[in-house]
Design a binder for these strands. Sequence first.
DNA 1: CAATGTACCTTGTAATGCAAGGTATCTGTT
DNA 2: AACAGATACCTTGCATTACAAGGTACATTG
Lengths: 121, 121
Amino acid sequence: MKTQLKKGTLEMCVLALLARADSYAYELVSRLADCMEISEGTIYPLMRRLQGEGWVSTYLVESPSGPSRKYYALTEAGHDSLASMQTEWQEFVAEVNSVLVPPQGSAAGAIKRDNPQGGNK
Amino acid sequence: MKTQLKKGTLEMCVLALLARADSYAYELVSRLADCMEISEGTIYPLMRRLQGEGWVSTYLVESPSGPSRKYYALTEAGHDSLASMQTEWQEFVAEVNSVLVPPQGSAAGAIKRDNPQGGNK
DNA sequence: CAATGTACCTTGTAATGCAAGGTATCTGTT
DNA sequence: AACAGATACCTTGCATTACAAGGTACATTG
């Protein structure tokens, strides 16, 4: 189920990380691994999408020990989109939470079970 | 983007609504419309999935003015799954929020922008 | 009868995760 | 030199789950 939860959030998370510091894709994978995971098969098409939207720009930097690194930087439009996405996310979370049942402890006497007629199919 | 955010949450939201009161599918659509939307094309395959998992049971009730209604009730396993999903959801929300940048007002001086080398591709 | 509302349902499509496969560049070892 | 390992990039096929659109069936009303 976690995979489905992630859908719709990873673009925003990547933009948020880039708002803190420019990164190359491979590094983003490890930076995100601290709290949630994104696979390499996901990050590259995702970065291509973000670039296609004009939310990130890129530049190449020689690596100290390996192939060059393609860094991504947030554009002004990227900042705007991130802010917009975060607002949408917070609203979405509030919506979902308004549907959920309170935790077990406090729900014992508060939940009203109702059914139009007893019995099963 | 909202559509993608919903993925992974609708099953849980439906289970949560059923925890409050049994419902038929068409009614669930309108009950959920209060805070988020789920289309009819979604609800029926979703209910079939929940039933396949043994999380809901069904029974038929004559409608006062129309075709019969197929009510869904949460099973014990459904209750357990709902609790488990809600825990996962809360953890997921915390994970995402830990990645996001604070709101604009307080972030003005706290965000440290870092890039390994200036310039664009 | 037709129109409308209710209730059920399926199907094709779009989008976005993941796993697995691949290429290229550097460093170290044999 | 060749090879192995790490780094960094990338693509492709697949699975999953939303949505829109299409459809059927039942009751009521005009």
